[in-house]
Design a protein around this nucleic acid. Structure first.
Lengths: 187, 187
DNA sequence: ATAATGAAGTGACATTCATCACAAAAAATC
DNA sequence: GATTTTTTGTGATGAATGTCACTTCATTAT
């Protein structure tokens, strides 16, 4: 489980065994079952989570009680309510498990500590943030320029495995269309 | 002009005079007139830009030649084609001036150099990236959950000055509605 | 195995919004 | 100051999509 984390970090920065075991000591483990909440609206968001196994969604619930999916997270992805985490305020999102999930948890304090003590970890997280920004900007762009049907096709192409793991209503909530409209896309 | 940059950086990290003059030595100046391009599609994107004065927009042009605005940048904001800049590939966006503009330019190499040499600059840019991510996620969320009229009202509230500086068609291209629809919002 | 719950498809209708066309007002240019 | 260009508003129309209602099929729980 931690082997994968090491690999994940080493995609960006090289680590010695000592480095990694020190880094790993700042994480804790957590296991959740399907449908369990990792974060609920109003919670203090003390951690960011690295997914070693499983699948989660981060959702915003609007005033009509409709769920909008901001982010999925599967193996090797990070997830949390970033707004709440970075600004150390209360959660505005729910994060819950679409499958049984295993996580490595990194507290805000430990993340800042690692960044302070190990310059290369600060570099790692800067790079991660940059990549996250680019990915989000691509999604934004897709929202502005593509029809929902095109967005559906592109998602299908980009994450074919996702479609074997979640229902169409979930995909619809991510794409920002009703499940009925999405259903009519399947020719 | 550089006083403001120092202030901007010191909102996040403290700097000595020596620090700052060293940092500043990695920037170059650039002045553009209204309507001039800073970046054109296909360009190599060698720099990120800090706006000391003026107003710009970053746009994506779809296959129907329609312009979608990804980002504005006014005083104290950073702008570039981030995707192209971070991955050192060709620009997919145009960036051009809505007003006469003065910029401080930081090359990719100099940015990485500063981050490597000064740990606190790496921290600064990590924080900036995190904040940018949050802001973009908020915009994404607003796209998914709010009507275009609500998004219009919110933008008006958040950046009242913007409306004195650009035309309604520009606002429409940022909000992702036609200028006609936006025009009908004004009661 | 049976019952209960959730997922997926589909018809009917209303709503939102883009597009086209045109006119009036404002701003920029000569 | 007159002319050109740009901006803004507005009507008519059609396309895309949300919502509601219902049905069928699949999955999960008892």
């Amino acid at each position: 489980m931690s082997k994968e984390l090491r690999q994940h970090i080493e995609e960006i920065i090289p680590l010695t065994d000592k480095d990694f075991s020190y880094i790993l000591s700042h994480f804790t483990e957590k296991k959740l079952k399907k449908h369990q909440y990792l974060i609920q609206i109003g919670d203090k968001v003390a951690h960011t989570y690295w997914v070693s196994n499983g699948l989660l969604k981060a959702t915003y619930t609007d005033e009509k009680e409709k769920e909008h999916i901001i982010q999925f997270a599967m193996e090797n992805w990070w997830i949390t309510d970033y707004q709440a985490y970075f600004t150390q305020t209360k959660a505005i999102l729910n994060v819950d498990c679409l499958e049984a999930t295993e996580l490595l948890c990194l507290s805000y304090e430990n993340r800042e500590k690692l960044c302070k003590e190990l310059h290369k970890m600060e570099h790692f997280f800067r790079r991660k943030a940059n990549n996250g920004f680019i990915a989000l900007q691509k999604r934004m762009l897709s929202f502005m320029t593509n029809s929902s049907e095109t967005r559906y096709d592109l998602l299908l192409k980009q994450y074919p495995t996702l479609f074997q793991r979640v229902s169409k209503s979930i995909i619809a909530a991510y794409l920002g269309v009703s499940r009925e409209t999405l259903s009519r896309f399947n020719k």
